[in-house]
């Protein structure tokens, strides 16, 4: 995801507020306009984080997401129905952001509009990472057709960075159910992604 791939994210504050509420009210096109804002905010926070002493600190994604959304939504005194909606939106957005980001990577890999110079694969190839992420996204979509709840649990946990308890709260389930869903969904995804077939769809 590049700066130039998106319009200037400097939207006016009331606009952000409005977009967030429109999207949470179920208007998908609002997401497209929100993403750059959220993206910029997440990236800014991530950078800030990484610029601190690295030491043995690891990135706390949940904190990051929370901070981003609190800044975007909270300070505008948004009327979110509840925390669950808040989490759900954050996870969905993160998923879309990352998936779009990955699509950009993959598209540019072969003669896209911006020349991509691949020098870094020796350490961790972003294209492969991107392709893996896209595969996961696809599998997750497929999972949703069979068992929407489990797909959602994965979305909240993996993309939203939520803990089991937070996921349970966001979805109005008890933690044991979330834990079971998570375990089963992970096994299914792992099986699907390593080419183990999808016969369980039947």
């Amino acid at each position: 995801m590049r700066e130039k791939d998106y319009p200037d994210p400097g939207l006016a504050d009331p606009e952000i507020t409005q977009l967030l509420s429109r999207w949470s009210a179920g208007e998908p096109e609002a997401a497209g306009r929100l993403m750059p804002v959220v993206y910029a905010e997440l990236r800014r926070l991530a950078r800030q984080y990484l610029q601190r002493e690295r030491g043995d600190h690891t990135l706390q994604p949940t904190a990051l997401v929370h901070e981003a959304y609190l800044r975007l939504a909270g300070q505008k005194n948004m009327q979110w129905a509840n925390r669950a909606q808040f989490f759900a939106v954050s996870a969905q957005l993160m998923r879309r952001i990352l998936v779009d980001h990955a699509r950009g990577h993959v598209a540019k890999k072969r003669g896209g509009h911006a020349e991509k110079i691949e020098l870094d694969d020796a350490i961790l190839p972003p294209e492969e990472r991107a392709e893996n992420l896209l595969a996961l996204d696809e599998a997750l979509t497929q999972l949703a057709t069979m068992d929407a709840r489990k797909s959602r649990v994965v979305e909240l946990r993996f993309f939203g960075g939520l803990t089991v308890d937070e996921t349970a709260e966001a979805m109005g389930l008890n933690a044991a159910t979330v834990r079971r869903d998570w375990t089963f969904a992970k096994a299914w995804l792992h099986r699907t992604l390593r080419g183990g077939g999808v016969e369980s769809r039947a």
Binding site: R47, P61, F184, K186
Partner: peptide, 29 residues
């Protein structure tokens, strides 16, 4: 086969996506 995948998947997806991609985010700009 699910149980086998379960055994193989202990670390799978346990680190949130944002963490895996944080460096890209932070350095892209």
């Amino acid at each position: 086969s699910f149980l086998r995948s379960h055994d193989a998947a202990s670390d799978f997806l346990e680190r949130p996506a944002i963490e895996l991609h944080a460096e890209e985010f932070s350095g892209d700009d």
